[in-house]
Design a binder for these strands. Structure first.
Lengths: 189, 189
DNA sequence: TGCATTTGCCTAAAGCCTTTAGGCAAATTA
DNA sequence: TAATTTGCCTAAAGGCTTTAGGCAAATGCA
């Protein structure tokens, strides 16, 4: 049996694909080994363990999301930036449900601090620069935006909005309108 | 060995406690059997399988949440109702993190339709009756509320808001202010 | 080019979880 | 009290995880 050419990065990428196909929590070292037609133990030279694999997939997803977010923000401001950025989350979750689920993985503080997660926070603040918020309201608004983006996408993905009118597309647009209106008119304490 | 007195309900309750202690995804038939000091196979007369057990825990959590939500709504309206109801979600998630995670389990459509999930939607609409929204805006608003509640609680639980000022308590209060302001001034399309 | 070292994948094995089949005894019912 | 149901058990098969140790291909160095 020759060598297949495994390495940590290939495993991570393949794990991400696997996650999109069968769901993030079905990503197992065994399934990944099958995909490379290789014995399970062989993977343990490249990833520390199952948790390590999942963490790497999560970091990959966060990176990709940040990448797309940055691209969406380029040259945009105000509501335009808001909807484009939010759309990135939503589209990514639809295109890559497994990766999106991975991006939600609870990371230990150090890993999280070193992840692209911090970029996400910075980008949200960049969006808010188009509105007139000063600290600490900006932070509150960042947290609210994060909540809405994550909450909506997550409820939509779990089927919460399907099979009922009006369709989710319309609600999404109106939620963007609402967020824009809210940010332009953020209430004083 | 005498009989321990297992039944589906006791298993479900114990499973919920276990979830709160060790996390919902650590709830296994084996762990539950250990907790009752009983052989694993014995549980299979009471629950169909591992997934069945998890689903039952999810339904229990949804029930408890609906129960608390209804109690919180009694005698309240407007912003008072809004914050009380939202607080139920947040408090429940803190008191019962495992159960709250269970409540997020993706249920198949029939199970979901028969669950207390529908009560939750009705209660959100009840809250909105204190504001001047008409269809389809009410539906959009319900979806947005659900997103914010779920999103905020879920980000907070995963540690997203800890270790940074201002503290989550304050942000939560300001998000409630913001939602109230938004609902009183929902933008036209 | 030949040898030494590193690297990559393998076999083996132990531990834990799930699920099914079949059995015995306690509890319930008649 | 006898018959039936019910509850928990033993046994066993199959899957995932992880570690230990081995052989051979690839790489590095004379």
């Amino acid at each position: 049996m020759g060598r297949v050419g495994l390495n940590t990065e290939r495993l991570t990428r393949a794990g991400a694909e696997l996650a999109d196909e069968v769901g993030f929590d079905q990503v197992t070292v065994s399934a990944l080994a099958r995909r490379f037609d290789v014995k399970v133990a062989s993977l343990y030279s490249h990833v520390k363990n199952s948790q390590d694999l999942r963490t790497r997939i999560a970091l990959l997803a966060l990176d990709e999301l940040a990448e797309r977010g940055a691209a969406a923000l380029a040259g945009r401001a105000g509501k335009d930036a808001l909807t484009a950025f939010a759309g990135v989350y939503r589209d990514y979750a639809r295109e890559h449900p497994g990766r999106y689920a991975a991006a939600q993985l609870r990371l230990d503080p150090e890993t999280a601090a070193a992840s692209a997660g911090v970029k996400h926070a910075r980008m949200m603040r960049a969006i808010l620069r188009g509105y007139d918020l000063t600290e600490p309201d900006e932070t509150h608004a960042v947290r609210m935006l994060g909540s809405v983006f994550h909450g909506y996408v997550s409820l939509e993905m779990s089927g919460g909005f399907s099979h009922s009118a009006p369709d989710s597309e319309e609600s999404w647009a109106r939620v963007m309108d609402a967020l824009d209106a809210l940010l332009r008119n953020w209430p004083a304490p």
